[in-house]
Design a protein around this nucleic acid. Structure first.
Lengths: 246, 246
DNA sequence: CGCTGCGTTGAGACTACTCAATATCCGTGG
DNA sequence: CCACGGATATTGAGTAGTCTCAACGCAGCG
């Protein structure tokens, strides 16, 4: 039962990047997950500076990672949706240099570091796939940094929407020419984009005026994918949508 | 002979994060490195979009990674010094989503992906250490994103200087209260900070006025580490300076 | 039915940008 | 050893993008 949920999202992500992973490897990973638990919106799932002894998977809901300066300024580092490992990197890294928080109520499952270690000792193929998984996260960070440094506020907003839409498609939570559920607030987007919430509002309004994107009451709709992609200069290659042996 | 050079820098980095790595593992890594070769300043070491069949180590010189938008805007994603693997992640990722370029003349050595694969098949401990190595890169990316999103130009400049100084200390190319060699141009810093070269100049001037940092003719000197660190809100924890088993 | 949180809009301020001019450094060739 | 040219650094002036503060609208909920 619990596997079924995981297969729907996590396995879709793993299979996308390496379909040659054996069922035995897949089961080695899946069989160690805890029962599901729930985290309320706006609560930390993993605090900054902690030393987790397990990795957390989002089964349902939206979460984010953020880093905080000593004076309280916060930057969102990633947005996570169903099927995302939010802190797979905590296994090699040990200490969390940032926090993970629930943006909406989240259903999660965890897998102990001891199992991760066992995987690295016994299953090189699965280990490489998990390593890749952490590197796709890093690739997204690079795109966010490219956005923060070089894209203006409008392009940056468009780019985030493109990325989220593409990633939701991977796990089957969105499909072309259909609306999708976007339960974030404009303040959430602002924290992710490194601009003020007021300015996010203006940028969203501009996307609406240009008939690229519409968003009301959590229902988001991409009106012109090609033009939005062009505006954002979005190239999905970094999401590693190709399947090749690792 | 060639190992001697590597030990000086790369091994210092690996040992810092896990001194329990066995000599056999270390040698498994070191023995596969190519002879040194040289890349002239401003030349690409690894082009964006390529599919390298080897990983590259900087033996001497300064390099950077950068991503480029289709209209030519560039963002530097990382600055690399002696002892840094610039594209270790190319092994799991296969395709480069960004480029690596020499900022100064660089001496490099490479290790084939085939050897990397062999390591993952036979040496779980070394594999975890290499995985960690790619994740320290990701931790730096997070700090850069935090800088880009939340730190102003002055703080950001100070933070980069703090990071570079700390990393140079790791490999023994800088030490407290002593000047160090900083062969970058202000334009290089601008590309890394996501601000204009003119503004970098003003920020450096301000650090000089505040008697925090002095830089002339490649010789850089941190005048007041504590105050610079405070200004930058630099917390070196993300560089993983602690040694614990992986 | 009145909070409270979120979204929207306007006005003025500030940070960092661009363009442009000048200064300085460094390597090269005479 | 000096003169030159190109790259780099410095400074000034005006501008653009984004910020902050503030007010108001609207919807959901206790």
């Amino acid at each position: 039962m619990r596997q079924t949920i995981l297969i729907d999202y996590l396995i879709r992500q793993l299979a996308l990047r390496d379909s040659s992973l054996l069922p035995a490897s897949r089961d080695l990973l899946l069989s160690a997950f805890s029962a599901v638990s729930v985290v309320k919106a706006d609560h930390d799932i993993v605090p900054q500076g902690s030393r987790p002894d397990r990795c957390t998977l989002i089964v349902a809901g939206w979460a984010c990672r953020y880093a905080e300066l000593s004076d309280g300024r916060r930057q969102t580092l990633a947005v996570h949706v169903s099927g995302d490992f939010v802190d797979l990197h905590s296994f090699p890294l040990k200490r969390m240099d940032h926090a993970v928080a629930a943006l909406t109520d989240c259903t999660i499952q965890t897998i102990p570091h001891t199992r991760m270690r066992y995987i690295t000792e016994t299953d090189p193929h699965l280990t490489r796939v998990l390593w890749l998984h952490t590197l796709v996260d890093a690739a997204m960070l690079r795109q966010w940094l490219l956005s923060a440094g070089q894209r203006n506020a409008l392009e940056r907003t468009a780019h985030l929407l493109c990325e989220l839409f593409s990633r939701l498609q991977i796990v089957g939570l969105a499909s072309p020419n259909r609306p999708f559920d976007l339960p974030l607030t404009q303040a959430d987007l602002a924290a992710a984009l490194g601009i003020s919430a007021v300015h996010v509002n203006r940028m969203i309004a501009q996307l609406r005026t240009r008939e690229l994107f519409h968003w009301h009451a959590r229902e988001a709709r991409i009106l012109d994918w090609e033009r939005l992609r062009e505006l954002a200069k979005f190239d999905p290659a970094y999401l590693i949508l190709t399947d090749e042996p690792r």
